[in-house]
Write a protein that binds this DNA or RNA. Structure first.
Lengths: 135, 135
DNA sequence: TATTCAAATTAGAATTATTCTAATTAAAGA
DNA sequence: TCTTTAATTAGAATAATTCTAATTTGAATA
């Protein structure tokens, strides 16, 4: 999602477009490492010197509620944030902790296999393994 | 996994078979609702009146490390525990929060679709939706 | 069976992640 | 520019989990 698209959606939803929201959104757009709230806090410090942790959490929750960012539960006890709103799954390298995005289309459709009692709104696959870059 | 199997594995790994470990393991075996650490704490209180929170966490971590229980990250900020060690996925009812187990075999194999750069050790699918029991 | 000792348990303090509170500031419409 | 309401802020509060240091206990051995 682009910075402009996020701004448009905030306005559509009657939410104010503030520097804090845009700096944090822009950071998430450019950062592909699925940062935690604390990663965001550290990263935006230089551009938002007065920004408190409360604002980081408020803003992340606002962006998630507005549907422009998603929160992912990977490791127990940590919440990570992702501005990639294309449906996708995650591949966690168990050696390094690096989380790779796996496009939705790359994995065959699963919804049919569950049967009619389960009405699926969404599903999220987390793969664990090792990534070998062809360096 | 049965109580006896867990006892055998603890011994195999050089871990002591203590009342705390067996009561907590037995609770997880019989409880199908994917309890949190605090749920476990409350549930075993009557059988282990002196059991502290530290022991709950120590024991759960020990059982997870021993491979007889698994920790699942579903909602952000909460860790849930599951003694069902048959490979399976989870279906979270977004209305009620109830987590249903979905047998691994019910979902078609996905490992092939990712390509050779990703060496998959494990994967975990979390479905979100609504469960309609045929009452 | 008693002794021994490393491992397990314990209470409570410490830490980490997150939310709440109440006062202050600022965005955007009139 | 003024006003209003939402957003931001610092720091306290809460929740989840880990750590610490003292105590207890399981089980190997004498």
């Amino acid at each position: 999602m682009t910075s402009e698209a996020i701004k448009r959606i905030l306005i559509e939803k009657g939410l104010k477009v503030t520097p804090q929201r845009m700096v944090i959104a822009d950071y998430l757009i450019h950062e592909k490492t699925h940062p935690t709230a604390d990663d965001v806090f550290e990263a935006v410090k230089s551009r938002l010197p007065a920004c408190s942790r409360a604002t980081i959490y408020n803003t992340l929750n606002t962006l998630v509620d507005a549907g422009v960012v998603s929160a992912i539960a990977t490791e127990p006890g940590k919440t990570r944030y992702d501005a990639n709103m294309h449906p996708h799954h995650h591949f966690i390298d168990t050696q390094t902790g690096v989380i790779h995005d796996i496009p939705w289309e790359q994995v065959s459709q699963l919804c049919e296999s569950l049967g009619s009692a389960f009405k699926i709104h969404d599903y999220q696959i987390t793969f664990f393994g090792e990534y070998q870059s062809k360096s």
